[in-house]
Design a binder for these strands. Structure first.
Lengths: 160, 160
DNA sequence: TATTGTTATACTCTATAACTATA
DNA sequence: TATAGTTATAGAGTATAACAATA
């Protein structure tokens, strides 16, 4: 129903972008907006948010990880992580524990409910964008992933 | 898939991401954070903001473009565009004009000052990330750009 | 009735600094 | 003195809906 049929003034393609379409920041933003649109269209009704699920997923893989390390790894600011974790805790998805060896720290792990949440949503989360009809071929998608991984330092080459 | 699961508090690279590193949304976010860090480190002191400059740049290329079309093309919400343009107007960078043919609309163009601003910052803006030492080779960068352009519908193939 | 742009409100994510309790 | 996490505050950016003027 969302027919982007445009009115009067201009058909859509008469806005020149010039070198902007060769700007990495711009392209990443455009791509991200598109991915997020798809994401919410697809999984919005489930109450699944991308950043949120990413954190739960990493907790699933790394039970007992410290909060600061989690934040650092996911490039989420510590102050923001505090809020997210408190929210998860209130929803009964995550448990916090202060280890004896360093009583400043907080270790995180999923509750049973948290594990269930991850289990129930993982497949939808990880497959949603490949279920989308894409402008890219499968080979191009693979290539894009490899390049992005390498760019952000997650490539097979090496870690941070 | 980096396994290395060790529950210890410790060293930095022991947070497993699993399939998350194969999630397009996640990779785009990580890449964008990185690009923005670079951007502000490099151009922050100039008072240059990426979204802001993009709008001014497109106005430079498309004098007289309508506000709504600009927003649509750059995937900026109309309500937000209103604020940006008002800000630009107050800084003397942009002029607004109501065309006779459709008095609901607003046509935008840069002032002399706006043109000067774009002229003064364009090179720094468009070259800053290629001046960065990157994990990617030049060929890989080119490839990444082509794939992102195609993904968001800006490729040489065709427009929207 | 539909549209263009505006206003108002709220929520997310981010940035920063001051604070506590530990180390 | 430094570190881990918290709190408080502010600022972008975004989403949404109601609204006025115009079509």
């Amino acid at each position: 129903m969302t027919r982007t049929v445009d009115t009067a003034q201009g058909s859509e393609s008469d806005v020149a972008l010039g070198e902007l379409s060769g700007s990495l920041g711009f392209l990443l933003r455009m791509a991200q907006v598109q991915v997020f649109d798809f994401f919410f269209e697809d999984l919005g009704q489930v109450g699944l948010r991308p950043g949120e699920f990413s954190v739960l997923w990493v907790l699933h893989l790394n039970p007992g990880v410290r909060q600061g390390l989690l934040a650092q790894r996911l490039r989420i600011k510590r102050a923001h992580m505090t809020k997210m974790i408190r929210d998860f805790e209130q929803r009964g998805l995550v448990e916090r524990r202060t280890p004896e060896q360093d009583r400043r720290a907080v270790e995180l792990r999923l509750t049973g409910e948290g594990e269930a949440f991850v289990r129930d949503h993982a497949e939808a989360f990880f497959t949603h964008d490949s279920r989308r009809p894409s402008t890219l071929t499968e080979a191009e998608r693979t290539q894009l992933f490899a390049l992005l991984q390498k760019y952000v330092g997650l490539g097979p080459e090496g870690e941070g």
